[in-house]
Every structure is written in structure tokens, then in C-alpha cells.
């Protein structure tokens, strides 16, 4: 399918949904519309609210805080995941000893940690960064672990026969292999960094998109909730587009990367 055709179809689906929403909340059957605007709001009201938020400039501070939390959670989580992924992949004994604890920690629903992080790190950005960290860390950790463990034995044997020492193997073989796996999970981990930030804000903070949504919700301002979600959705799409661009640039050597650019 051509890019323009695809894009217009994608936009058509969005407009259709908006029209359905609009009709259900405005066209009256008897005294009231089918969906009560008090609970469902109206698309035009939501758009007007989004416009107002941006026009008044109040939203930028919240967006900035959420973005900062997301970026910090991603960076710390990724660094931690890479370091521990490497150590565990290269040390059989360490991996075996810690295995049940890693699994237990990863199985724990992270939301239950949010109140504890708030006690430890306060209501500012750091409790949200910590929550995002616990989500990102495990994704990157498992991917790097697997990436290092599954380096082709032939490539490894070849590099050894070329005379590479441990440091050179790390740099030319293990590191690129681990990075590949990390980047293949980049969309997921960036997404989870954002989830951590927003959920953290939602549960207790004084700024950020999650806070905005929670604030609107607590006064039954459904339009405010939808406006927050629209802004969040657009924000996610922009971040995802940037991640895709970074990925295509960094994984240029991969066969898949080539086919992606061919399509675009």
C-alpha cells in the first residue's frame, strides 16, 4: 500500500471514531443523548480543552516533568539493565544464585511499589523515576542477558582465533550483540518508562500528565480526563517516532532495518 493511501485511511478511522462519539453524545433521543456528556464528554469539548491547555501554556510544565521522568527512568533503567545483564550473562554462578530473586522481583506488580517509593523518595520526580526504573530495568536486563548468552559461537570462536582478548571481545562482540537486543526492546522499554512516570504521578504528585488526569478525575471533569489522555497519546506517538528513527540509524547493519527504509 502506498504511504499516502495508508495515512489517509489511518486518519479516516480516527475521524470516523470522533464522528460516532460526537453523534452519540449530541444527537438527542427524547430528553437526553444516548451517552451522557457528563460521563463521556464530547470530542469538540475535549479538543477545545486541549487547545486551551496549550494556548494558556499550563500544559508545557506538566509535559516537561513527565518527559524528564520518562527520560531519567529510561536512562537509569537501561544502564542498570545493561550492567547487570552483562554480569549475569558472563557469570554462570551469579546468574544461578540470583535467578529465583530476579524472577520474583520481576513478577511483582510494580504498582504496589509506588507508595513505598513515595515514602522513600518523596512526592517529587524521583519516586516516579524509581517506578519507571523498576519497569525498564527488567526489560533491558533480560534482553541484554539473552543477547550476550546467545552470541553466535562461530562469531565468538572466530574473534578468539583472531587473537582478541576479553576486553576486545567485549567491545567488538558482546557489546554490539547486547545492544542489538536492547534496541529491539527499545519501544517496549521507553513505553514502560512513560507508564512508570504517569502511574507514579497519578498516585501522588503535584505535576505531570498523570497528575493533570488525576486532578480532573477528582472533580468529575471528564473533559479534562479525556484532554489529558489525548495529550498523552500524542506525546507517546511522538516519542515512538523518535525511537524508531534512532533505531533505524543504529541498527543499519540489520537486514530488517534495510527493508524498513525501503518501505519508507
Amino acid at each position: 500500500m502506498k504511504r499516502t493511501t495508508l495515512l489517509s485511511l489511518q486518519i479516516a478511522v480516527g475521524i470516523l471514531l470522533l464522528i460516532v462519539w460526537h453523534l452519540l453524545t449530541t444527537v438527542k433521543f427524547g430528553a437526553k443523548p444516548i451517552l451522557d456528556p457528563f460521563f463521556f464528554s464530547r470530542p469538540l469539548d475535549v479538543l477545545a480543552r486541549v487547545w486551551k491547555d496549550f494556548y494558556a501554556g499550563t500544559i508545557w510544565r506538566h509535559l516537561g516533568i513527565t518527559l524528564l521522568e520518562t527520560v531519567l527512568a529510561f536512562i537509569t533503567g537501561a544502564i542498570g539493565g545493561i550492567v547487570f545483564g552483562f554480569v549475569f550473562a558472563r557469570g554462570e554462578i551469579v546468574a544461578a544464585v540470583f535467578d529465583p530473586y530476579i524472577k520474583a522481583a520481576n513478577a511483582l506488580p510494580r504498582v504496589v511499589l509506588a507508595p513505598i517509593f513515595m515514602l522513600w523518595f518523596g512526592l517529587g520526580i524521583w519516586s516516579k523515576v524509581a517506578l519507571g526504573f523498576t519497569l525498564v530495568f527488567f526489560i533491558v536486563f533480560f534482553n541484554v542477558y539473552q543477547g550476550v548468552r546467545e552470541v553466535s559461537p562461530t562469531i565468538l570462536a572466530n574473534a578468539r582465533m583472531l587473537g582478541m582478548n576479553e576486553r576486545q571481545l567485549l567491545r567488538h562482540v558482546y557489546w554490539p550483540a547486547a545492544l542489538t537486543w536492547m534496541f529491539s526492546s527499545l519501544h517496549t522499554s521507553v513505553g514502560f518508562a512513560l507508564v512508570g512516570a504517569v502511574v507514579g504521578e497519578y498516585l501522588g504528585s503535584s505535576a505531570g500528565l498523570g497528575y493533570k488526569i488525576h486532578e480532573a478525575e477528582s472533580v468529575f471533569d471528564v473533559t479534562g480526563v479525556f484532554a489529558g489522555m489525548v495529550i498523552l497519546a500524542v506525546f507517546v506517538i511522538i516519542i515512538d517516532t523518535i525511537v524508531t528513527a534512532i533505531e533505524n540509524r543504529l541498527l543499519i547493519w540489520r537486514p530488517q532495518a534495510q527493508s524498513t527504509t525501503a518501505q519508507g
Binding site: 562469531i155 587473537g163 562482540v173 554490539p176
Partner: peptide, 28 residues
Amino acid sequence: AEAGFLFQQDALMPWKTALDNVAVALEP
């Protein structure tokens, strides 16, 4: 250390260009 080994399977580092794959052999 005196031997060069040519493998049956692909042994090149897929994340390096042909030039880098050859040049890296001199790094050790």
C-alpha cells in the same frame, strides 16, 4: 596463535562493515 581459521558457517561480525571486519583483525 600461529593459525588463521576459516569457518564453514558465517563468522563475520554482522554489525561491522566488510572493511571493519577485516581491519579489526589487526587490533589484537
